[in-house]
Design a protein around this nucleic acid. Sequence first.
DNA 1: CCATCATATGACCACCTGGTCATATTACTG
DNA 2: CAGTAATATGACCAGGTGGTCATATGATGG
Lengths: 214, 214
Amino acid sequence: MPKSTFFNLPADKREKILQVAIEEFARHSYREASVNRIVERSGIAKGSFYQYFEDKKDLFKFIIEKSGEKKLEYLGQVLNNLEQLDFFELVRELYAAGIKFAKENPELFAIGQRLLKDDDRNLFEEIMEDPKNKGQQFFVELLKKGIQRGEIDPGISVELVAMLLVWMNFAISEYFLNEKKKNDLMGLMEIVDELIYVIKNGIKAKGRTENADR
Amino acid sequence: MPKSTFFNLPADKREKILQVAIEEFARHSYREASVNRIVERSGIAKGSFYQYFEDKKDLFKFIIEKSGEKKLEYLGQVLNNLEQLDFFELVRELYAAGIKFAKENPELFAIGQRLLKDDDRNLFEEIMEDPKNKGQQFFVELLKKGIQRGEIDPGISVELVAMLLVWMNFAISEYFLNEKKKNDLMGLMEIVDELIYVIKNGIKAKGRTENADR
DNA sequence: CCATCATATGACCACCTGGTCATATTACTG
DNA sequence: CAGTAATATGACCAGGTGGTCATATGATGG
């Protein structure tokens, strides 16, 4: 947690530092992010940085936590409709919420995506619980409920499909990150719909009597 | 390309340097890998390193290229059976070959997986063409052939499903990397089979008349 | 035995890193 | 106004980075 000195700062100065730091962590991994660049670009002295934060990790952790809370706000709105949507609609809305978060908070999103790819497990453990596990557990519950409702094939391995759904989300996010110049929100949602269709119906050729749900 | 000096080295010294370098790049990203550590651990002088290689990138590129060739050998064996297997069997064998490569060349595999996650696009462009694109194009051709054969639903977007298959391969690889202590080859192949089943048949509840292929 | 050429070496360079600390400045309070 | 407490500052530190270079050593051939 940043020191009280940081929170006593005038709001504009505080926000400036945060904004610069978020940019730095969006462009560089935690290890490669530079405290020197942050203090230079936010116009404070090196010493001041360490009056505000214990160390580099303190600042990073703070930003990650704030970002996580913000993302949960986006996902929370979807979960209000939890009972009214079937499994596939719900997954669709969850992906949509994730994309909305990414669109509206591109730097925070980039930081999160970068952290997900970082294989320094210690970094995760010191900062927060691995969100991939969180996401997988959530999808497992969703799948079980879908099976109870008769929406999902009871023969599948829920753990594995949950993993697949987490990974698909990650893949969509990477796609967004790499191609964000070309694609607007609609284009991405079409991809999401197509992916969900595949997960729902499979890709094998259908016999005449079988019908696939769009 | 390394300088002739490197190739003139006695084989054991040359291999020692390569082995140490491979370890270094498996444990650290390109940027974080240390020439100092490599020279120290392989018992050569700093200056000698630069008699053998133009710079750090020269060595890295060399290792990446060698690793790519080796992986292609594994995949090539599968492609000999290209005509005798249906689409899903072929994908299964391709994944199996990738896992075999990872099992037998864990360091090279780790380097490749790390490079895939690295978002320094310049690094890719200077070193090689992005293997994700290669893989996707290949799956596109495979899917088209599958559609012609009547194995694949012609209504799908081949580009998107190809992307999904590439990402599934990546996900399986990450899983292997993170959990390799616990899982043996059989365990991983069970996961592969389950994933292919999902892609093939979908996860929605099946009506009585429909049957899913294992 | 000497001359030439390839190779081996580590001190050295400029630059960067995260972090510290004595000192200067400012703000608050009696 | 004085005195104290909070904050701001940048020089400085040890240790790291990739890369260079003059020099030393070794081998090869006439």
